[in-house]
């Protein structure tokens, strides 16, 4: 018996909810045979701004949840993704990847989540110090999240590139607004469904689909965003992001021509990129 498929509606993920874009706009994603794969939301500046509000609202609660808890939440994402492996593989294939590549990307992504889940209660000891000052003070430096991070995700590795940026940022206590791969956005929204069922509090990860050209300037210039991460090799866009980011001295991170399978991209140094260091002094003399 031939059954008619139920097609999935892909929406945005903001503040733990799945709204359509407020703009009502869409763009079509097609496969190599020019068949429609899905209509994606074409997110607007207003959607981005809403996502920043959600991210800011969620940030201090997420940062203050225990390291152990954050690690378990990340591990839970990996578990949920493992259970829905086949769906993700199918989506990557639908967007043009080979079966082998799609399988590899999904399993590497899951393993990467587990990797960062394990760092959740360890990177602090790695990056923090007790400083032997030459006076009667106890002096230490510890890491804290930078805050709200906007991420313009990798275009080609649409799942692995995404997870390789989201995981270190949120394990560090940040909340993020991600613009998914423009040409391969399916996995990003399906990942949102995984996040939504993995005890990740709403607003910690917000995912938008849309045009880089429309959104990058807002992602770089918004005054309530603390850091902006860009993946890609568009030199003009990189320059523009740096210029706009200077308005509130945002921390900028650029990944040009990055191979997400390379082991250097699985490292606590990626967590450090969205951390601040705080030094505290107290007298010891009485």
């Amino acid at each position: 018996m031939n059954r008619l498929d139920i097609n999935k509606t892909y929406k945005l993920y903001i503040g733990g909810k799945f709204p359509r874009t407020e703009s009502g706009r869409y763009y079509a994603v097609k496969n190599s045979k020019d068949n429609l794969v899905a209509n994606m939301c074409l997110a607007s500046r207003k959607d981005f701004r809403n996502a920043v509000v959600a991210a800011r609202k969620a940030q201090s609660h997420w940062a203050n949840s225990t390291a152990l808890n954050k690690g378990q939440v990340l591990y839970r994402i990996a578990e949920m993704l493992e259970g829905r492996k086949e769906q993700f593989i199918a989506e990557l294939i639908a967007q043009g990847e080979s079966v082998k590549a799609a399988k590899n990307e999904v399993t590497t992504s899951i393993d990467r989540l587990v990797y960062y889940a394990g760092w959740s209660d360890k990177y602090q000891q790695f990056f923090s110090t007790v400083n032997p000052v030459s006076s009667m003070h106890f002096n230490f430096s510890n890491v804290e999240p930078v805050g709200v991070v906007s991420i313009i995700a990798d275009e080609t590795e649409s799942l692995l590139g995404l997870i390789s940026l989201i995981a270190p940022a949120i394990v560090g206590g940040n909340t993020v607004i991600v613009l998914a791969s423009e040409s391969k956005p399916l996995a990003a929204i399906s990942l949102a469904e995984v996040l939504n069922s993995s005890d990740v509090p709403g607003g910690v990860v917000n995912i938008l689909t849309g045009k880089k050209n429309e959104l990058f300037s807002h992602m770089a210039s918004h005054m309530d965003v603390n850091s902006v991460i860009y993946c890609g090799d568009d030199e003009k866009m990189i320059k523009s992001i740096s210029e706009l980011a200077s308005s509130n001295i945002k921390r900028t991170v650029f990944y040009k021509k990055n191979d997400w399978y390379n082991e250097v991209n699985e490292s606590p140094y990626l967590i450090e990129k969205t951390l601040e260091l705080k030094t505290t002094w107290h007298p010891t003399g009485i």
Binding site: N131, V133, S134, H137, N139, S141, L277, T279, W281
Partner: peptide, 9 residues
Amino acid sequence: KFDATSPFG
């Protein structure tokens, strides 16, 4: 208070 061993920024 400042010290060479103490990160500042």
